[in-house]
Amino acid sequence: MTRTRAPRPAPARRRRALSTGAALVALTLLGACSAVDDAVDEVDGVSSADVPSRYVALGDSFTAAPFVPDAVEAEGCYRSTSNYPSLVAAALRDAAGNQPGPELVDVSCSGADTTHMTRPQTTVLQQRVAPQFDALTPETDLVTIGIGGNDFDVFGTLTGRCPQLAVRDPQGSPCRAALRRGGRDTLLSALGRTQQRVRAVVEEVRERSPQARIVLVNYPQLTPEKGCESLLLARGDNAYARQVAERLDRALRQAAKATDVELVDLWKASEGHEICSDEPWVNGPETDFSRALQFHPFAEGQQAVAGLVLEALGF
């Protein structure tokens, strides 16, 4: 378990699957990444007393931001040093002036779901990483959470299984049909449990770090309402994919409301920045090793989240 293997490029026939764990298998980190622009302008007039001292970032690949430069292997978590937690921490250190800025403990990991908050995760490099909650302490005073999309394989189904089914019936709705059992849609039904799981995550964070300000970050819009060919779905499944994404977003909003924590509304902010847009915040179906994993955030998206988090914090 402690041996580290260098990842190898994935075969072309597998590059279109989004299952966060499967999509990262055998991918190679490339060096020579360019620096990412600052996420936010420096804020004047902020008291150093307002700056958190210990910031813990929990989340999956939309927090880890695989292949956003500069990227590190992180035992298979593929965590960027310019993801939004890193950008937020850097801005808070600037705001602190001559005082110490926050200690950032970023344990976000590609492939993580809510169960990996309390249980170890085996990454694509077959490394076992500790439960993310192990990073929480009573002294932690800021926690961001970005989780839920991998529960019940929601993202993996939409961008992995559904495109495979589209080949058989490109004009129909084969994915929607395949997921209906006994008169119920199994994917949509599972999202009710996602809301309960995320709510439990927030409540446990509050118990472990009672002094922490907790911020829940939702997911960006991947496609506009009219659909997007870049998801490689059958024509009739575009509306279905949008419905699933909206239901996931609703689950996160309900979890935030039920636990009375702040929601950073990336869903709303990302309108007009979908995969098919002129200025996308999320990559399309082809991995760009110098910018982002397939169907994962670009640096521009991470900068946007950082700005939203800082705004929520009053910076």
Rank of each mutant, 00 (worst) to 15 (best):
N218F: 04
E204K: 05
L222C: 04
D288T: 05
C162H: 05
G101K: 11
V68S: 00
A292E: 06
C109R: 00
C33Y: 14
L263E: 13
Q171G: 07
T4Q: 14
Q195F: 09
E103H: 10
F295Q: 03
Q121N: 07
Y55Q: 00
T122G: 08
T140E: 06
Q221S: 02
R291V: 02
C162R: 10
R291Y: 03
D185N: 01
S230H: 07
R206F: 00
A251C: 09
A57S: 13
S61G: 04
E75P: 03
V264Q: 01
E262A: 13
R180T: 02
S277W: 06
S80T: 01
L58I: 10
H116Y: 05
L222K: 11
Q211G: 08
S53L: 11
S173H: 08
E262H: 13
R15C: 04
N238A: 09
C109N: 00
E262K: 10
A64M: 08
P170R: 09
C228P: 04
V244K: 06
L191N: 09
A135E: 08
L263W: 15
L252A: 04
F67I: 00
E73N: 12
N238K: 06
A64Q: 09
E207G: 09
D141C: 03
G59D: 05
P9L: 15
A49E: 14
T20N: 10
D37N: 12
A96R: 00
S82L: 01
A71M: 12
D237K: 03
S173P: 03
G156L: 01
V40D: 12
L27A: 13
Q254S: 07
P163I: 01
T159H: 12
N283Y: 12
L232E: 05
E279V: 06
A35E: 15
Q99N: 15
A57I: 06
N83W: 03
A258F: 11
C109H: 00
D260S: 07
Q99A: 15
V51Y: 15
R176F: 03
I145P: 05
S61P: 02
P297H: 12
S86R: 09
Y78A: 03
A96N: 02
E103Q: 12
T115Y: 10
V309Y: 01
Q302N: 10
S82R: 07
P280V: 02
E311G: 12
V43F: 13
N218A: 00
S108I: 07
S108D: 10
P85F: 01
A239L: 10
G314T: 15
G76K: 03
G111R: 00
G149V: 04
H296P: 01
C33R: 11
Q243Y: 06
G183I: 03
V205F: 10
R8P: 00
D141H: 03
T114G: 02
A255V: 02
D60K: 09
P11A: 08
D113I: 01
S47W: 14
V154D: 00
P170S: 07
L248T: 08
P220Y: 12
A312I: 11
A65S: 03
